[in-house]
Nucleic acid binder design. Structure first.
Lengths: 328, 328
DNA sequence: CTGAAAGCGCTAACAA
DNA sequence: TTGTTAGCGCTTTCAG
């Protein structure tokens, strides 16, 4: 069996309570005792049993994270960044995926909560985030990102989606495009709606909406291609998966990018720079967003004022080869 | 506070031990008691406190997973599949990333072990997997994947890397290519060495090795391009990141794929089918591999015979447009 | 500042 | 088949 706090106490010649106090530095301890305890900890290679300390104190150093999909590179990048921050601050990250499904999301959150996590980071899969009460009811600090807008009792991190829409539209207008199609997995998610609103607002005319379906119920390329309307000279993909689908659909239709159709993608990934043509895209500052999300969560954990922060980050439009004047 | 087992027991009119026995169905319980307990559990919405049960029993329903990098789509796909299996079987997955660094890997594994996980799934970041003794010493079931070959005390899942190399080489030879460059993050990992061995074996001549560096110390495109030798008529990328880098380097050099250079990538991802030209690539059967990995882990958890399984899966070569005859 | 003692919620051993 | 009892390793009073 592993080394226990009693063994450490005995080795150091103090009581278990003192060891505990030293390790959590919650109470002042005489310098000499502290030294002896630290020496014992090192000598015996002591690791506290987190289950015992959780059971007694009701608090753990676990952070739970729930995202709609582990394979989406945007979420993966978020998680990677958050994981790093957690580790640096002595927390551990438990990752769960909701599979873009509210029921699974609730189930996952419910089981995460049984571990009494120090905090929860969630990218909700729907606009209304039905598990909100579950989390706030358990009094667990919560930070949301990307979808589901602001909720009472949680901080929220996203990009300025409307601005992203406007930036995209401005570029297209500048190139002379007016008939534009928008691709997205679903148009019933807050961030997508905002992006679309920004586009419509600037373009001054509604876009053709092409829903490609989420994950499991993703449409077939042929079906998506069938939704394409030929008078469109440009396509905007509002999501990274939509970018791939748009590309596939245009290819299926035999349209050339950017000669026949200009394309602007969402989320900037390695392959977009390398593709031929390379893809003009909106970049989200993932690292920065993760940083802010973590800071908010930590602030909530430390029990600061419960301001329901809503941070909007600046998207960036990376111009590449997939966009060209409409005249061509 | 949450509902405890005592409250359930009281409500059901039985003892706490009986409730425990019903829920773990480890001991036989009279049908009527079982019914009453189940009713009480439902009525009170009881969830066992996992910390308490872990503390007492020394076993948890947590599965730990450690991969070199959360953003690598191959690992992400593996994790997604494993996560699903875990959930289906009532386990929870804790994901950690080693950042392709042995020290971090050991630290992560050490802290996962404090939770006494039911099992561990690891994609080691190096050939020798220094944490092996740590895990087997803690008597935690272990399954390894992708790298670090067979180790005593663990099951191992991978593709037949040598075969993948041979298949790639055969295709190239058939197209008349003989001077071939191989791109990889590092040539000091077992699976890469095997892939290379398969290539060399079939091609009958050594390949130009172009190391692009791992993660943090990834080379610059220009630097990679500088390593290219002009008499090569084909490039093989032995990794998904290497595929992107190879593409970028060739583009940097102004070489056209497949007219100037044929390219075969590794790991088959969505963008490869959609890129222009689409990329010929080796596909690893990720789902199937995850399935086998999970089965092995579960078998070990259930305490079956500790056979050190080594499963080799069939890679598949997907022919697309990035490969053409050498004569061109 | 330190130690003794209680007890978090659960399960394993044992007795009934 | 069931209940009683003890105790997992830790943190938290509370006396000293």
């Amino acid at each position: 069996m592993a080394v226990t706090i009693k063994q450490v106490a005995e080795y150091a010649g103090v009581s278990a309570a003192t060891v505990s106090n030293v390790l959590s530095d919650s109470k002042s301890v005489r310098e000499e005792s502290r030294r002896k305890v630290m020496a014992a900890v090192k000598a015996l290679n002591y690791k506290a049993n987190p289950a015992a300390s959780l059971l007694r104190s009701g608090r753990s150093n676990v952070i739970g994270a729930v995202v709609p999909n582990l394979q989406n590179p945007f979420f993966a990048a978020m998680l990677a960044a958050i994981e790093r921050h957690c580790g640096d601050d002595g927390y551990e990250l438990i990752v769960a995926s909701s599979n873009d499904n509210e029921t699974t999301e609730t189930a996952r959150i419910r089981s995460l909560l049984t571990w009494r996590p120090a905090g929860l980071f969630v990218v909700p899969c729907s606009r209304n985030f039905p598990s909100l009460d579950l989390v706030t009811g358990a009094d667990v600090p919560l930070v949301l990102a990307d979808r589901a807008a602001s909720q009472r009792g949680a901080d929220f991190v996203e990009i300025d989606n409307r601005l992203a829409g406007r930036m995209t539209a401005e570029k297209l207008r500048e190139l002379g495009h007016s008939r534009v199609a928008a691709f997205a997995p679903s148009f019933d998610v807050d961030n997508i709606r905002e992006r679309l609103a920004g586009l419509t607002e600037t373009l001054g005319t509604p876009l053709r909406q092409i829903a490609i379906g989420r994950e499991q119920d993703r449409l077939d390329v042929a079906d998506v291609a069938a939704l394409w309307e030929d008078d469109c000279t440009a396509a905007v993909a509002l999501t990274n998966s939509a970018t791939l689908m748009a590309l596939a659909a245009l290819r299926h239709l035999g349209r050339t990018v950017p000669d026949d159709v200009s394309l602007i993608g969402f989320d900037d990934y390695d392959w977009m720079a390398v593709a031929a043509p390379s893809i003009t895209a909106i970049r989200q500052p993932v690292r920065e967003m993760a940083q802010v999300a973590w800071d908010s969560l930590r602030k909530r954990i430390k029990g600061g004022a419960a301001l329901n922060t809503h941070t909007m980050h600046q998207p960036e439009l990376i111009i590449r080869e997939s966009t060209a004047p409409a005249s061509r």
